[in-house]
Design a protein around this nucleic acid. Structure first.
Length: 586
RNA sequence: GGGGGUGUAGCUCAGUUGGUUAGAGCGCGUGCCUGUCACGCACGAGGUCGCGGGUUCGAGCCCCGUCACUCCCGCCA
């Protein structure tokens, strides 16, 4: 028995009755009955009730205890009388009769209660994060985080992958997010960058011949935060050699959905993981990260409205716009106000309004139906698979805007009509992302994703096709409407790269300097490689059923990127700045 | 950079149409209580109503400005 404990606070049960034990932990609660005091002693593992009578020599000490004092208690494990058994905790059948107690440390009055799971202001929780972490929910979440990461590593190792650590102090990368820069002391005027991802390193590891690489890799991006986006986060980063797209999928599918199953805790995991093209998800779900739990599928009704009596849509279609139809199952009995609210929602998301028709028992109601002949109404009904009791909403815009808006309406209807099973996980791979995209500000063509990605159709496509129609071997894994993985096959043909970079507006010299390491390495026998990266924090967030990343990160920053506990960021001293050759502009 | 929400006791919140001394639960303090487990009972302390200005006989409440936190858009290959 060590000085502090023989058992933990979650360990003792009937089998220990009669034993003399030693426990250490925090005073979760004290219930003082005057001549009888109960202490709920808490540690990471659980809570054990300790009791003392006024006849005992230590009674006075126990009476002075306050919440969150740390104490060491020695005593006998005794059975609780049947009438006072606590079924809520595993140790509820026994209690410790205190024979000796020492106070290891004391606590001031708390800024918020640890033993009560009550809503607490975010900044207060973050300032006293170590107190917040003592609470049951965060203890549980951090435990899940550990187990998930442990499971990831084990599964990757079992598949024959090696984990390597890539540098944190590295070089800035020209494309992508804003970098965090670290000034160099030894090289005046030069800066390191923290990695947005180990992208180039992992490709170089494959050029180095390490066939299967993975890493639980820290990544840093200096972009505004969100509930599901923070400055620093972890990826399960993967790169493989001599593989095709399906090989990457096979690895992902034998790791990620399996981990979801492992931590499902009563929830279900759909074993079917469809591959859906980028074009198709936009058409059917109006987003590149569809929530497949939502059964609504968007349909294109442009042809039906062409030359129809519904003038607004007919003329819009004539001008090249499209009409998207979104079915709202079993909604015909919704009050007028429900339809009005959806109209307001439509305006919020930038639409002029939301047309709809309602299929009731005897008639078709709603603003669209009045101006449409029966044949067209039937066609729409058939198109959407609608029947009596359903309604259909219509969005009319140019293609991209219509898809996006219809996607938002689809999500809204899914929530409103309670169509989503919150206890289910549904995955899919979104494949065939575009290789190039039009920069909305400059109007020029640029890379859609990794500039070293492989395009479909090879050099031939690069030379002959309209760049914006070229697809990439680029894919995302999506779960319940959240992107949890992104990856692609890599280009390893330097000739093709030159052409691709030229289309994106880079001359060879620029590529050579900006991506010097990869560019040089590609001259020395690069293998075909592919990879992807899974968002570890997001996966833990989903498995913990939390809406915010801060709930699954040990010491998170706030929305403004400050660590309220450590007080970061903070001004540097004159000496530090001098050493770093930095002069502040005031 | 833009939009929404919130800000009242240590914590979570209520506060009516602008009207007396701003309330509740928890926590905290004191006392009582031998079977509680969110113990109970009694008493008590505790307030720059985020901050600044304005309207008014009178502002927690109305108006203007500002700050903090949070959610979203932009941004995030």
């Amino acid at each position: 028995m060590n000085k502090y404990r023989s058992h933990t606070c979650g360990q003792l049960n009937e089998t220990n009755i009669g034993q003399k034990v030693k426990l250490s932990g925090w005073v979760n609660r004290k219930r003082d009955h005057g001549n009888l005091v109960f202490i709920d002693l808490r540690d990471h593992y659980g809570i054990t009730q300790c009791v003392i009578q006024n006849s005992d020599k230590n009674f006075g000490v126990v009476e002075t205890l306050k919440p969150e004092y740390v104490v060491c208690i020695e005593g006998n494990v005794v059975a609780r009388d049947a009438s006072v058994i606590n079924d809520k905790i595993p140790t509820g059948k026994i209690e410790i009769v205190i024979e000796d107690i020492s106070i290891l440390s004391t606590s001031e009055t708390l800024p918020f209660q640890v033993s009560v799971e009550e809503k607490t202001a975010e900044d207060l929780r973050l300032k006293y994060r170590y107190l917040d972490l003592r609470r049951e929910k965060l203890q549980r979440n951090m435990k899940i985080r550990d187990l998930v990461i442990r499971s990831m590593r084990k599964r990757m190792w079992d598949l024959g992958f090696n984990e390597f650590q890539t540098p944190i102090l590295t070089s800035t990368s020209p494309e992508g997010a804003r970098d965090f820069l670290v000034p160099s002391r030894m090289h005046e005027g030069k800066f390191y960058a923290l990695p947005q991802a180990p992208q180039q390193y992992k490709q170089l590891s494959q050029i180095a011949g390490f066939d299967n690489y993975f890493q639980i890799a820290p990544c840093f991006r200096d972009e505004d935060t969100r509930a599901d986006r923070v400055f620093e986060f972890y990826q399960l980063d993967i790169e493989m050699s001599f593989v095709e797209q399906e090989d990457i999928f096979a690895v992902g599918e034998s790791v990620i959905p399996e981990i979801f199953k492992e931590f499902a805790n009563g929830r279900t995991v759909d074993p079917n993981i469809p591959r859906i093209s980028y074009d198709e998800v936009l058409e059917k779900y109006g987003t590149d990260k569809p929530d497949l739990r939502n059964p609504i599928i968007i349909k294109d009704a442009s042809e039906i409205f062409k030359d129809s009596g519904f003038g607004v849509f007919a003329s819009a279609v004539e001008k090249g716009q499209v009409v998207k139809a979104i079915i709202a199952p079993a909604s015909s009995d919704k009050p007028r106000s429900w339809f009005d609210k959806l109209g307001e929602f439509a305006i919020e998301i930038g639409l002029k309004g939301l047309a709809y028709m309602v299929f009731t028992e005897n008639e078709v109601k709603g603003p669209v139906a009045k101006n449409l002949d029966q044949e067209r109404i039937n066609k729409i009904k058939e198109l959407c698979g609608a029947s009596t009791g359903d309604s259909i909403f219509f969005v009319c815009e140019n293609l991209e805007a219509a898809q996006k808006a219809a996607g938002k309406v689809r999500i809204r209807l899914g929530e409103d009509l309670n169509l989503i099973d919150k206890n289910d996980f549904k995955f899919c791979w979104v494949v065939d992302f575009p290789f190039f995209e039009l920069d909305s500000e400059t109007g020029t063509v640029g890379f859609c994703h990794n500039p070293f990605g492989l395009n479909q159709g090879g050099i031939e496509a690069l030379k002959t096709q309209d760049p914006l129609t070229i697809k990439a071997y680029q894919y995302d894994m999506v779960c319940n409407g959240a992107e949890i993985c992104s990856g692609g096959l890599r280009n390893f043909d330097q000739e093709a790269m030159k052409i691709a970079f030229a289309i994106a507006g880079y001359d060879e010299e620029t590529v050579k300097t900006k991506f010097s390491a990869l560019w040089l390495a590609f001259q020395y026998g690069p293998p075909p490689t592919a990879g992807c990266a899974y968002g570890v924090d997001r996966i833990v967030m989903m498995l913990s059923d939390e809406p915010n990343l801060r709930e699954v990160i040990l010491f998170p920053i706030n929305q403004k990127g400050q660590d309220l506990m450590m007080n970061a960021p903070i001004e540097a001293t004159e000496k530090q700045l001098r050493e770093l050759h930095i002069k502040l502009r005031r």
